[in-house]
Every structure is written in C-alpha cells, then in structure tokens.
Write a protein that binds this DNA or RNA. Structure first.
Length: 538
RNA sequence: CGGGGUAUAGCGCAGUUGGUAGCGUUCCUGGUUUGGGACCAGGCGGUCGCGUGUUCGAGUCACGCUGCCCCGACCA
C-alpha cells in the first residue's frame, strides 16, 4: 500500500515514543524493563500502518476485514448471525430488484409462506429430512415467565408446545403442504411462486455472507403437470441466475449438474453455478433443483391430467442467497478494498471538491450541480461530497475502500483550467480531462469498467482451469487451488476418496464440454462415465 | 460435543511480588489546516464478563459459571 505523507508523520510520532522508551530502558537496565514490551510496541506500530491485510498474506483475513471495514456487514451479538449494514444492504437490494424483474419476466409471482414449520412436515420426505435435520433450530416453548422479584429478569419458558416447530431451513415442506389445496386439475398448473425471505440453518462454523446461521435469499417453488416442463423450468432458472451473475455482477460462472452425493436433499437433479474466488476455490453461487414427484408424493399433491388420470405434480425449487455478496467481493476486490461492478454499485460516481475559500466552494458547487443533473438524467447515481469535516485524502481512501467505480475531483485549479480529474476504481488510473462533455465520458467509462472487470475475472478463471488425468499430479496441484477437469468413473467411493485425500469435491459435471470418450478415471483406472469439475470449495 | 485461547473505555491493547486502573484510537471543544487517510492544545468516557471465597485490601490469587475466538467433528 502506498504510504501517505500523513502516515509517515504518524510513524515518526510513534518512533519518537519508541526512542523515549528505549532511552528509558537503557537508563533502567538494572530494573530490566522488559525487551518484549519494546517489541510489542514495534509490532503495534507495524499493525497500525498495515491497514487492510493484503490478499497475498492471508486471503481469509483480507476477506473478513474487508467486509467489516467497507461497512457491508458485521458479526451480530447472536451466535452465527450477521448485521447487514446499510451499504451492504443497498447492494443486496439492487440484486433483489434486478433479479425480481427477471423472475417476473418468466411468469413467476411473489408470495409469502411462514417462518415456522411444524416438525412433522419435515419428516414427510425421507431424503429431505436426512439432509436438513441436523441444521434445524427448534421452537419447543412459547411464553417466558419472569422471576418473582419482578425486576424484569426473564427466566425459563413456561408453556411447552404440543407440536414443536422448526425455523425454516428451506420451505419445500410448508409450500407443498399448501399447494395440496391449490392443485386439483391440470388447469391449475403450472404454479410459479417465489418468496424473498430469511432462512435459518444451524451451521457449526460461520463466515460473513458465505455461511451464516440466518441468511437472506429467494426461493422459487414451481409445480408442473409434466416432467418435461419441470425439468425445463429448473434449467431455465439456472440460466436466469447465470445471466444475472455474469451480466450484472460481472462474476463468471461454470454451469453444470451436481453429482448424486452433492445434490439437494430430495432432488433428482441439482443444477449449479460455480464461481471461482481469487484464491482458486469454488463458491456455489446459485442452485436450481428438479425435484421430480418427491414432494408431490410426500404431501399428496395430485391432479387430474388431460387423460383423466390422477397424477402427482412435478416440482422444482431454486435459490440464490446473500452468499452472492461473498462471490462479488472475492471476484473483484483488491488490496485497497472493494471493487464494485457499476451495474450493482449503489453509488456509481462520487464527486469530491477541493477548496480553500467559501467563494471557491460556491463556484465548484454551481459547476457540480449541472454535472450531477446531467448524470442523473442518464440514470447514473452520483454523490457529491462537499463535507468540510473530512479532508480530501480521507475521502479518496474511503471511497476506494467502498468500491465506488468512478471518482471525479474538482478543485479551484480545475475551475480555472476548465478540467476535472477522473479516477476509475478498477485500475486506479487517474487522468485529467476537459470538463465539457465529462458526463458522456463518465457514462462510457462506467460501461468500460463493467466490461473490464468481467474480462479480467474470465481471464483469471480460465487460467486456473486445468485438465488432469493423473491422480498424483492432481493431488499436488490442487493444493494451490484452481478447477480441475478430470475423468470420473461415476462412483461415490471415488468421490469420497478424492475428498479424503485432498479436501476437494466434485463441483459439477459442467455443461458445454465434449463428453464423448471421457477416458479412464484418474483414481481407479476404470472407464469414466464423464468428465467432472473438481475443486476445493467454500 | 472434544482440545486450546481469551474476557480491562465505543474499538485495539498494557497493567510487575495483591495497594484502588493506564496507553493508542474514536468521540467532544477551540485554533491552524484542506490536490492522497492533518496538526497542536484541552476534555468526556471503565461497578476490570458474572458469582463465591481468601485477604485489612483483589483487574491481579482460588473455585464455579457464562460469552466469544481458533482447531476438529458438521456444512442443500
């Protein structure tokens, strides 16, 4: 990180204190002022100057610090839960509004189903309960009683529930229990519902946005008269996700289908999009499930088809969560902080004035007012920060940390020359341009940034996808991250062995690759059924 | 659930053989500043996680409890 003048002054101050201590230490050697203290102070000086941890030093720590320092989210004082701060939530709201529109364009309607689900519902689909039981939080009582001293101290719950409730880990059960009442005839189908909500999964280990006990998501649940229609819907929604994640978030993904062991509990097929993080791991960013008739049978949802036959309804479900925020961060951001794609940035352009006198500020204010109006008329969100409580250098660093795509700086000097300084966040390149027509330039620049960060991410991903047929070579190379395209014999045993040996898992059977003659399995040497994508995952 | 660590000002930390708590930062006030995270001066802010015990006296010692973090198990 570039050391600023002010930081240098700060170091000098710290060293003055240090030298003071050292002098003291020399004077009082017989009293043995601890050398370790001096080292501790040195360490403190180093930490203070470091700012954000570098990605190359500790990727995991860099991520955690960035989420907090960019004011996206923080750990709540509740086990495994997070508080999403206004800036982070603004990004989520943009994700929501754009996706919501895309869903509706395919005929989906929004609805809402309860947070609490009777425990017995979960048990109705055998595989489903197997997959989720361990992650369920259970409501066993209602009404707390306070203690006898009436000092407001809440003690034990008083009334036990006859039937315990679970907090939804996902809503297939309550929704299909409801669909039973909605579906009598093929004329009632399809039903295409989505809900934006929270779910709760009692995870052992959590990380902000990537895995939290409570998280926000959308879950779509559709019911269809035919198998073909349901399968088509599941694939259609995966395409909606992939188009959104690549087109709006500028995050490239690999699309594919999950292996049997990795697929959703209760699904016949799980389609997935897998993003690659900068440390070469896979991040499952969205899934779409073809559920067959499993939930139709479990909840007795049947209808009279066109041939006058009673038939169980066919189902899909599909979801993306606040985990997308993690994918966003781990694809684009750098050692200076967040890098946001313009199409998702809550603020796309920030304008910082630099002035000495009130007259100068007023002149800049007037000039900026017209620029802001023109930008807004182009649909660009712009923030003018003439707060005189903060110095320009502070603002520069802060807006870089927050990932604002474009920064304009206008000072008294620029007013005289008719210029403006333009900085793009993705490359941190600065240039001075004529202030006339700057709005058109900014509009073009935003598009350039969107394209550039996507291309950069695609290049990075493609450089880290390897074809591999040799298990020894694989075991060695996978330790440095990356996606590996390998022939697989289709057995769960092989999958387990790979996981035990390397911690890597089969992410998917990717679409769009040649599967004729997949070769022989690199672990067992048996004929392969297909080539699969293997990676370590978040 | 097992192993380890930790708990002192909003945040990050120091606190020696037990003697009544301090540093940095944040925040507030005033002034000087403002083209890359300002400086100087002054000020506010803590029943030291909770409980019991030992002691004339506990942040410090003992015992118990609780929260959080790390490692493992777990993770559609």
């Amino acid at each position: 990180m570039v050391r600023t003048k002010m930081q240098v002054l700060e170091v000098r101050k710290k060293f003055r204190i240090l030298i003071f201590f050292l002098t003291f230490a020399v004077c009082l050697t017989e009293h043995s002022i601890c050398i370790s203290k001096i080292f501790k102070l040195l360490e403190a000086v180093a930490i203070e100057l470091k700012g954000l941890t570098k990605r190359s030093e500790n990727y995991s720590q860099w991520y955690n610090e960035l989420v907090v320092k960019a004011e996206l989210a923080e750990q709540a004082d509740v086990r495994g839960c997070m508080c999403i701060r206004p800036y982070g939530y603004a990004i989520w709201e943009k994700i929501q509004s754009i996706l919501d529109k895309k869903f509706k364009e395919t005929g989906v309607q929004n609805a809402y189903f309860p947070l609490l689900i009777p425990k017995s519902f979960l048990s109705k689909e055998a595989e489903h309960v197997e997959g989720f039981a361990k992650e369920c939080a259970v409501v066993t009582h209602y009404r707390l009683k306070t203690n006898d001293t009436h000092d407001g101290v809440v003690v034990d719950p008083e009334a036990k529930l006859d039937e315990e409730l679970i907090l939804r880990p996902t809503s297939e059960t309550i929704i299909w229990n409801t669909y039973k009442n909605w579906i009598k005839s093929y004329r009632d189908l399809p039903i295409l519902c989505n809900q934006w909500c929270n779910v709760m999964r009692w995870e052992m280990r959590t990380r902000l946005f990537l895995r939290t006990s409570e998280f926000l998501w959308q879950e779509g649940h559709t019911a269809h008269a035919t198998r073909e229609e349901a399968e088509e819907r599941a694939k259609m929604m995966l395409k909606v996700y992939a188009d959104f994640v690549e087109g709006v978030m500028a995050v490239p993904v690999v699309q594919g289908v999950k292996s049997e062991t990795e697929r959703f509990a209760g699904a016949l097929d799980t389609y997935t999009i897998e993003a690659m993080t900068q440390d070469g791991k896979a991040l499952q960013s969205g899934t779409s499930h073809f559920l067959g008739q499993n939930f139709g049978k479990a909840f007795d949802v049947s209808f009279l088809n066109k041939n006058q036959e009673q038939e169980y309804a066919w189902a899909t479900s599909w979801g993306v969560s606040t985990r997308l925020m993690g994918a966003l961060i781990m694809t684009h951001s750098d050692d200076n902080g967040l890098v946001l794609p313009p199409r998702l940035a809550p603020i796309q352009v920030v304008i910082v004035p630099i002035w000495k006198t009130d007259e100068q500020l007023e002149a800049i204010n007037n000039k900026v007012a017209t620029i802001c109006d023109t930008l807004k008329s182009k649909g660009i969100t712009v923030k003018y920060d003439n707060d005189d409580q903060k110095r320009p250098g502070f603002k520069f660093a802060d807006y870089e940390l927050k990932g604002i795509p474009v920064r304009l700086v206008i000072g008294a000097r620029d007013l005289e020359n008719g210029t403006v300084e333009v900085m793009r966040r993705d490359t941190l390149e600065k240039e001075t341009r004529n202030i006339d027509g700057i709005e058109d330039y900014v509009e073009k620049l935003l598009n350039d940034i969107q394209d550039n960060i996507f291309k950069k991410a695609v290049t990075f991903r493609d450089e880290h996808i390897y074809e591999c047929n040799d298990y020894e070579e694989f075991k060695q190379k996978i330790q440095n991250g990356g996606f590996f395209l390998c022939p697989w014999d289709g057995t769960a045993e092989t999958e387990t062995k790979i996981k035990e040996d390397t911690q890597a898992t089969i992410r998917c059977v990717p679409f769009g690759i040649d599967q004729t003659n997949p070769g022989v399995d690199m672990v067992t040497g048996k004929p392969a059924t297909c080539k699969v994508l293997i990676a370590k995952a978040y």
